[in-house]
Write a protein that binds this DNA or RNA. Structure first.
Ligand SMILES: [Zn+2]
Ligand SMILES: [Zn+2]
Ligand SMILES: [Zn+2]
Ligand SMILES: [Zn+2]
Lengths: 149, 149
DNA sequence: GATATGATGAAAATGAATTTCATCATCAGA
DNA sequence: TCTGATGATGAAATTCATTTTCATCATATC
């Protein structure tokens, strides 16, 4: 973690930026937070240790991390975007509409078929998003997680 | 087309709604429009024949069509949502980031693998979205579509 | 330390989507 | 056909996430 933060620091400096306490707190908070956080969630958690930090700085810092390749913007259609660290390799998501649980999965077969599809259409893919919405095991029809959870 | 509009009309009546000229124009305009339209595009096109129609009515009418199962809401991350008619069977999308072209595709193999993935996680899928972003044949790196278009 | 410039946070602006509300239109019943 | 109840409309107001603005502060460099 320390290594990572130092490395990002160096990249910011190299790009003509300056260090800042607020930003350092946000960055560390982001990598410590559970993945798929909203700006609002992250702001709240970061303010526990540094109450003065404005939500705008969190917005700006996540955009910066995205530009540097350390964060990935997600949109599960909830109104607010979510962010996850981009350190782990690519994956897609199962999103529970009941409890909000997000399950990550990776499927080489699906990715290969996607390549075939794009090739068939002479399309040059640069990114994709695959999200499957529904109900997780706990929330599946028949279970009553809210009651027993 | 006439059949379809009458059928929707009947469903609205059956659900306790009333007929309205504005809404009829929007609905017909929607099914005549090219697919994947934004509210703004549809409003503009609909106003050519019925200038008085407010954008709010277009919003409301598309929500209604979605509720009735005739329209599908899409989000290609452009800020504004897009809508397509839900009459044709399910498909996914290739979206060109240069010219905005949307190519529809259907891949049974991908859908089957998605089923396997969800089953493996005890997840009950109700919907999914798969979009592949990149450059279409015309806009592919090396081509200069804007110049030769 | 002085200076230039990046970073900050509050407030304002933006922009899509939704809600409110007074008015209009449509349907059902008399 | 008239009439009352209620759905639909459009303009304006509202909401809400995100972005921009701007005066001020902090950091790097000389
Ligand atoms: Zn769940
Ligand atoms: Zn993830
Ligand atoms: Zn293109
Ligand atoms: Zn489509």
């Amino acid at each position: 973690m320390k290594r990572l933060l130092e490395r990002i620091d160096r990249e910011i400096l190299a790009a003509g930026g300056k260090r800042s306490r607020s930003r350092a707190v946000v960055i560390e908070g982001f990598f410590r937070a559970r993945d798929h956080v909203t700006i609002e969630e992250l702001t709240r958690s970061v303010r526990e240790s540094a109450p003065g930090i404005g939500a705008v700085t969190v917005y700006r810092t996540l955009k910066l991390l995205e530009r540097l390749g350390y964060a990935k913007e997600l949109d599960f259609g909830e109104g607010a975007r979510r962010y996850e660290s981009n350190l782990s390799p690519h994956h897609d998501h199962l999103v529970c509409r009941q409890c909000g649980t997000v399950i990550e999965f990776k499927d080489r077969g699906i990715e290969n078929l996607q390549d075939l599809v794009t090739r068939r259409h002479g399309f040059h893919p640069t990114a994709h998003r695959l999200e499957i919405y529904g109900f997780c095991r706990k929330c599946a029809p028949g279970n009553s997680p809210e009651r027993f959870g």
